[in-house]
């Protein structure tokens, strides 16, 4: 057993795929008896919005992203279209809807928790959610745009949360 009981995460990404790691690590951290705080700043604020259905993933500029179909005959599901489709294709309108749809389907098929499920699990486990006040104002959000239970504070508060924590992750 460990005496290192605290963990903090800075969540900075606002795309559908990058919404998962902070919530997965935070909820697991609590399961491992850590006291966890997530500081959401810049695009990471998207992860606290009441409506997360607008979050998208795009393969544009991410040539490392595997693109396999979650349905169809087995031989077809094995093909990785990632390296086969020219990356410029993903600059066409609405292609991110297709990529997001396929990623959601694949996750469901693999028994991966949904974003809202992971986020409510974090809240149930008392993970502290802090939204960066400066970026909330900068991006013109209103506090009503976010889910209940979010604290609004700045970088100094993040540092206070780091006190006594030896897991401090930037995502």
């Amino acid at each position: 057993m460990s005496d290192n009981k605290k963990m903090t995460i800075i969540a900075t990404k606002g795309t559908f795929d990058w919404a998962f790691p902070p919530f997965i690590i935070a909820s697991t951290g609590v399961a491992m008896d850590k006291e966890v705080t997530i500081f959401f700043t810049f695009y990471g604020l998207n992860l606290l919005l009441k409506d997360t259905s607008k979050l998208r993933v795009s393969p544009l500029g991410n040539s490392g992203m595997p693109m396999k179909l979650p349905f169809g005959p087995e031989w077809l599901q094995k093909i990785d279209f990632g390296p086969k489709i020219p990356n410029i294709f993903w600059s066409l309108p609405f292609t991110e809807y297709l990529a997001t749809f396929l990623m959601k389907k694949t996750m469901k098929k693999n028994g991966v928790a949904t974003l809202d499920e992971l986020r409510s699990m974090c809240q149930e486990f008392d993970v502290k959610f802090i939204a960066c006040e400066m970026t909330v104002a900068l991006f013109g959000y209103s506090k009503d745009d976010f889910i209940d239970g979010v604290e609004f504070a700045g970088a100094a508060t993040y540092f206070e949360e780091c006190d006594g924590s030896n897991h401090n992750l930037y995502m």
């Binding site: 997965i24 909820s27 697991t28 399961a31 928790a113 699990m121 486990f125």
Partner: peptide, 13 residues
């Protein structure tokens, strides 16, 4: 059964 990481651990907790 059928659940993937980290759900089995979260549900165990």
């Amino acid at each position: 059964s059928g659940l993937n990481c980290p759900l089995p651990i979260l549900k165990t907790k």
